[in-house]
Simulated scan of single mutants.
Amino acid sequence: MASFLRFGSFLLLSWVLTVVGNPAAAAGVFRPKPWSLAHATFYGDETASATMGGACGYGNLFMNGYGADTVALSSTLFNNGFACGTCYQIKCYQSSTCHRDVIFTTVTATNLCPPNWAEPSDNGGWCNPPRIHFDMSKPAFMKIADWRAGIVPVLYRRVPCRRNGGLRFAFQGNGYWLLVYVMNVGGGGDIGSMWVKGSNTGWTSMSHNWGASYQAFATLGGQALSFKITSYTTRQTVIAWNVAPSSWCVGLTYSSNINFR
């Protein structure tokens, strides 16, 4: 009996170490949030050219997989850039301009809608804190409402980001400073913390720069690079091993074969 108890305790301890000691296993998978009320406007034209770049730093949104289904968030939602990459379902609500045959559209946060303190928040200063507001690309807005409405009430909710392929890492900086933009993030879509490891170093913590970028003040040239990333929302952690070869260069984007759930 004592041997069985010791064996059972060993199994329990092994299970605890396996689940709790593994951040990816211990953290939850991102689930859709409840619907909430807000308002939406649009910026740019039908080409979505005005949405390129943006405060998150994703550059050309078509080349990097985001397309025209994007949105700029008011600063209350933007959260100093930690909301970059998050995904939302948005549906037009109780307006005669709503497209009745469209249930909702799904967009990715790629930009900041800055406050306009010269206008009141209910008449022009739509993105003034503490207002929650979505400034959509015009193509995305046109999926849910007549663009001539200008502004419509909407229901919105955070949803998991469905991405094809793995995380992508766009490199900037120099030999002593590595700046990395993380793109194509699945699951919660966001990044809370990040580390880099050279083939000849241990893990080095990277600090949040702005938007979807993280930086490390370290000499990492001539080493293959791996990244450890934790989701801001779910706290799930994944490791992308040997993403960039030892011959990596700034100005290039490197893809991994791993992503968040």
Score class of each variant (00 low, 15 high):
Met1Gly: 15
Met1Leu: 15
Phe4Lys: 02
Leu5Ser: 10
Phe7Ser: 11
Phe10Ile: 00
Leu11Ala: 07
Trp15Met: 06
Val16Met: 15
Gly21Asn: 13
Gly21Arg: 09
Ala25Met: 14
Ala25Glu: 02
Gly28Lys: 12
Val29Glu: 00
Phe30Leu: 02
Ser36Leu: 11
His39Tyr: 14
Ala40Gly: 01
Phe42Lys: 03
Gly44Asn: 08
Gly44Val: 10
Glu46Lys: 14
Thr51Tyr: 11
Gly57Ile: 13
Leu61Pro: 12
Leu61Phe: 10
Gly65His: 05
Tyr66Lys: 02
Tyr66Gln: 03
Leu73Cys: 01
Ser74Tyr: 13
Ser75Trp: 14
Phe78Lys: 02
Asn79His: 07
Gly81Ile: 11
Gly81Arg: 04
Phe82Lys: 09
Ala83Leu: 11
Cys84Gly: 09
Cys87Lys: 10
Gln89Trp: 01
Gln94Asn: 14
Ser95Tyr: 07
Cys98Leu: 08
Phe104Gln: 02
Thr105Tyr: 03
Ala109Trp: 02
Ala109Gln: 01
Thr110Asn: 05
Leu112Phe: 07
Cys113Trp: 07
Asn116Gly: 09
Asn116Asp: 15
Asn116Pro: 01
Ser121Glu: 15
Asn123His: 15
Gly124Lys: 09
Pro129Phe: 13
Pro129Lys: 12
Pro130Leu: 09
Ile132Ser: 04
His133Thr: 12
His133Ile: 12
Met136Thr: 06
Met136Gly: 01
Ile144Trp: 01
Arg148Trp: 06
Val154His: 03
Val154Asp: 04
Leu155Cys: 05
Arg157Asp: 06
Pro160Cys: 08
Asn164Lys: 13
Ala170Gln: 09
Gly173Cys: 07
Gly173Ile: 07
Gly175Leu: 10
Tyr176Phe: 06
Trp177Met: 13
Leu179Pro: 01
Gly188Gln: 15
Gly188Thr: 12
Ile191Leu: 04
Lys197Trp: 14
Ser199Glu: 11
Thr201Val: 04
Thr204Ser: 08
Thr204Ala: 06
Thr204Ile: 15
Ser207Asp: 14
Asn209Thr: 14
Trp210Leu: 02
Trp210Asn: 08
Gln215Cys: 05
Gln215Ser: 07
Ala216Val: 08
Thr219Asn: 15
Leu220Phe: 06
Phe227Ile: 02
Thr230Met: 15
Ser231Gln: 03
Thr234Trp: 06
Gln236Cys: 07
Gln236Lys: 14
Ile239Phe: 12
Ala244Val: 03
Ala244Pro: 03
Ser247Glu: 05
Trp248Val: 06
Leu252Met: 03
Ser256Leu: 01
Ile258Cys: 00
Ile258Leu: 02
Phe260Gly: 08
Arg261Ile: 01
